[in-house]
Each structure stands twice: as C-alpha cells, then as structure tokens.
C-alpha cells in the first residue's frame, strides 16, 4: 500500500483563560483513531464538514504535524521523521494557501521549484511545458502572481506542485472559490494526471461534484472519526438516500397513496413529490401511479449527494 494510516490520532492541547491567572487545559481530538490505506494510482475523495479533521490528516501525511498516536507511512516513509526526504516524492496544493511568490512573475516561482526539488533540467522543461499546455498557463508565466485571478493562481499552484513528478498529490480544496469553467479545467487536468501518469491523488473538498466526477472511492470523516469509506455509489445506501418522483396530475388531488412503495413529501396544486428508496427501480411505482391516477407528466430526481452527506453529519452529531 502506498499510504498506510493505522489508528492515527492527533490531540491538540487548548488552553483557555477561565479567570485571573487561571487557565484551563483542554484536549481536542482533531483526529481520533483513523485507519485507511490508499493503493498506488488511486484517486480518493476525502470529505467532511469544517473542523472534521481533514486538513489535520493532510498535514500529518505531509509531515508538518506529528501524530499523537498510531502509525503512518507514505511510500514507506514516516512523514514527520523524514519530512524532507518525503517532500521530494509528494506534491501538495492547499487551495486557500499559495506556494507562489506573490510579487514576482509566475515563472520565477517555477524556477525556484526547479532548484528546490533539484529537478533535472530536461524533466523540468518537459513537465513545465506539459503543465503550461494542459493548465493553459502560456500567457501567464510573466505575470506577477498578485495580478492573477483566483482560478489562474490555483492552476499555477497545481503546476508548481507537479514539476518534480510527485508520486502522490494531496489536494486540499483545489476548486474552492472557482467558477464553473475553472473548476472543469482543474478536474479535467487531474483526471488526465491520474489516468496517464498514475499519480495517486488524495482530494479534500467541500464540492461534491469534484468527488462525483473524479473519485471512485470516498472517505467521509466527521469529528475526527471515519464514518464511511467505500464506493461513491454505496454512500447513498449508507446514508439511506431517496430518489424523488415528481408527478403532475390533471387536477388537485389528495396525496397519492401507494402503500409502502413511496411516501408523499410535498403537494403543490396538481404537482406532488414522492420519495422512494434510491436503490429501487422507478418503473413499478410509475406504472402504479399511472394506472390509478390521472397522470399528465412526470420526472425522476436523482438523490442529492450533498443531502446524503448532510444527513450523515447530522446523525453523527446527535449520536
């Protein structure tokens, strides 16, 4: 396994002033005994609400935070012990931070990466050309970073993380604040990177479309604990998600009754909304409604993954 996380925890000591000279020490478990493995070439989504422990996990995987307990290996290396050695093999993009030199043209930051990671000249040239082409950075290389738009800067940051051919790329919110087109560009690039180069990708995001479009596997973390690890499709079952059948009837009628097959969640004039389990076929339900009610039109809405996850978070919070 390329990334091995076994019972890892991170506890922060938080001191709070409770009175004159009096302080209370409190321990916060940002990550509470998490275990998972990621194989080489996998593309995994890592999601959870704010403060769930996602960034803390990423920081431990880069070696800038030392775990309080458990065992952690990336490419066989203990990150916090051999941070510098590991640094040559990983790429990191923190969406809300930048590695680029604010006042200087983009190309200057890349030249610095060239030296910092001791990239052989021909590899540097090749990787830079490739990133410039795929991330459309051609006209931006001579522009000072402070003048770039957020989307341009993000693409610039992603390129900076890839010049040294990292085996794994950690992306922490790479599409945050980007418009639809910029998001699409970033996703397309990541798909190609993973497909062609086999780069392992661990993607943290709040944008579930990132996950839906890129990752076959998703891990959900909440309050420092792993609440789901598996295929994206399975998330619907795990979250007990429902599809919605929207029917337009000829006239206003009392709520449709189809037994346990579905339940009406909303009525608005002649239009009614019926919820049924996401795992079941809509055909039987549609046939039954069509046979018993004066049906004009209908549509099926796919389950909203955001709603599923929101419910998952909420359940954990009350549990």
């Amino acid at each position: 396994m390329f990334i091995e996380v076994d019972g890892v925890e991170k506890v922060f000591d938080v001191r709070r002033k409770t009175g004159f000279l009096k302080r209370e020490r409190r321990q916060v478990r940002a990550v509470d005994s998490i275990s998972f493995t990621v194989a080489r070439g996998e593309m995994v989504g890592y999601i959870g609400p704010n403060g769930a422990g996602k960034s803390t996990t990423i920081k431990m995987l880069t070696g800038i935070l030392t775990p309080s307990g458990g065992r952690l290996r990336v490419a066989g290396i203990d990150p916090s012990r051999e941070r510098t050695r590991l640094a040559h093999r990983i790429g990191v993009v923190f969406g809300q931070r930048t590695t680029l030199w604010w006042d200087l043209p983009l190309i200057d930051s890349y030249r610095l990466m060239h030296r910092m990671y001791r990239i052989p000249d021909d590899r540097y040239r090749e990787n830079l050309d490739r990133c410039v082409e795929l991330l459309e950075l051609g006209g931006l290389l001579e522009v000072p970073v402070r003048q770039l738009s957020l989307g341009q800067r993000m693409r610039g940051d992603i390129a900076a993380a890839l010049l040294h051919d990292p085996e794994v790329l950690y992306l922490d919110e790479p599409t945050i604040g980007l418009d639809v087109i910029s998001k699409a560009k970033v996703r397309e690039f990541l798909r190609e990177l993973n497909g062609e180069r086999g780069t392992t990708v661990l993607l943290t995001t709040h944008d579930l479309q990132d996950i839906e479009q890129l990752c076959s596997r998703v891990m959900v973390i909440d309050h420092g604990r792993m609440v789901y690890d598996g295929a994206l499709a399975g998330l619907h079952e795990a979250g007990g998600s429902e599809r919605i059948l929207v029917v337009d009837l000829e006239r206003e009628l009392p709520p449709i009754e189809v037994g346990s097959a579905a339940r009406v969640v909303k009525v608005e004039g002649p239009r009614q909304w019926l919820a049924f389990p996401a795992g079941e076929s809509a055909a039987g339900l549609v046939a039954r409604v069509a046979a018993e009610y004066p049906l004009v039109d209908l549509s099926v809405r796919e389950p909203d993954i955001e709603a599923v996850i929101a419910r998952m978070y909420a359940e954990k919070a009350t549990a």
Binding site: K59, G63, I64, R83, A87, F94, R97, T99, M116
Partner: peptide, 8 residues
C-alpha cells in the same frame, strides 16, 4: 504550512 512541507 506551505514553507514547512518544502524540502528546504
């Protein structure tokens, strides 16, 4: 954080 994960 960005400065710390660099090999420098």
């Amino acid at each position: 954080a960005v400065d710390l994960y660099r090999p420098a």
